[in-house]
Structures are given as C-alpha cells and as structure tokens.
C-alpha cells in the first residue's frame, strides 16, 4: 500500500514537472494575449472616447492586471509628470524594464508601437492599431500551439521518467 502511494506520488510529480517546463511557453502565450487585448482596449478608447494617452494607459493598465498593464500604468504616470521626454522614449524605457517573456523581435515590435501612438489623427490611430493586432494574430496562435505541444510533450516525459523510476525502485 505504501509502495503504491509512493509510486502514484512520483508519477503525479513527474506530470507537474513536465507542466512546469512548459510554463515558459504558457507565459509567452499569455503575454501576447494580454498585449492583444490591451491593443484592442487602446483602439476602443481612441475610437469612441478619444481619451488622451496618459489617462487611457493608466485606466487600461489598472483594468488589465498583468505585467504589460503595470508598464502601461508607469508610462501613463510618467507622461502626467511631464518629464521632458518624448512619448516614444518613455514607452521604450518602460517596456525594456518590463523583462517580458518574449523574443527580441517581439519586444522590438512592441516598442515600435510607441513610435506611432499619439501624433496621428483618430482614424489613422485606429487603423494602425487594427493592423498591429492583425500582425499579432499569427505569433499568438503559434505561441498557443507551442505551449499546448510543449505541455503535452513534457507532461508525457515527466510521467514516463517517473514511471521508470518507479519500476527501477520496485
């Protein structure tokens, strides 16, 4: 009975070990999903309310309690402090500080959004944000598949490794 319990514990442990390995992939997918939703929020606020960026970023950041949201709150607050820096500079600084679980290319793409926010008219802003969200769709779907694949793979590896240990121990 004791041996059976120990064996079960090992297999379950192996499963969770596998899942923890896949966590990195999940984080990346979650981050891209948050980013996608934030872009949608920004687009909506600009389209319907024409809210200025500092207020809009703080509101959205506080609503979406996530890593990028925290950066947005900091950006919004810094603009309201009227530091003598351009919006793009503040945006870049804060996103780099975020240490997000994304590749360099993805981070660069996020930073480039800051260079296009603020100075165009409402229609152009909305079109730009729509396009950015469209461009994000494929990386997001890929990240989702990678996470699911990694989850299944590592879980199986974990269970298999645990099972082997059980067999060896028995």
């Amino acid at each position: 009975m004791f041996k059976l319990f120990g064996a079960c514990l090992l297999v379950v442990g192996g499963y969770f070990w596998g899942e923890s390995i896949a966590l990195k992939k999940k984080k990346r997918y979650q981050l891209l999903l948050d980013w996608w939703q934030i872009l949608m929020d920004i687009e909506g606020e600009i389209r319907t309310m024409a809210t200025p960026l500092p207020i809009l970023l703080v509101e959205i950041g506080e609503k979406r309690k996530c890593e990028i949201g925290e950066s947005l709150v900091r950006i919004g607050n810094r603009i309201q402090m009227r530091e003598q820096l351009s919006f793009a500079e503040i945006w870049e600084e804060e996103l780099k500080k975020g240490n997000f679980e994304v590749g360099k290319d993805e981070l660069d793409r996020m930073i480039s959004v800051g260079k296009n926010l603020g100075f165009l008219d409402k229609t152009q802003q909305v079109l730009f944000l729509e396009q950015t969200r469209k461009d994000l769709k494929i990386p997001m779907e890929t990240a989702f598949l990678q996470w699911k694949e990694a989850k299944g793979f590592y879980e199986k590896i974990g269970i298999l490794a645990a099972s082997m240990i059980v067999v060896l121990l028995l």
Partner: peptide, 13 residues
C-alpha cells in the same frame, strides 16, 4: 505641441 496635447494629438482633432 506634444506637451500641450499630452502626447495625444488625436484627442484634440
């Protein structure tokens, strides 16, 4: 102009 518009010219179209 950037400071006046809070870096959001679209909001003052």
């Amino acid at each position: 102009l950037e400071y006046v518009s809070s870096h959001s010219l679209y909001a003052y179209e």
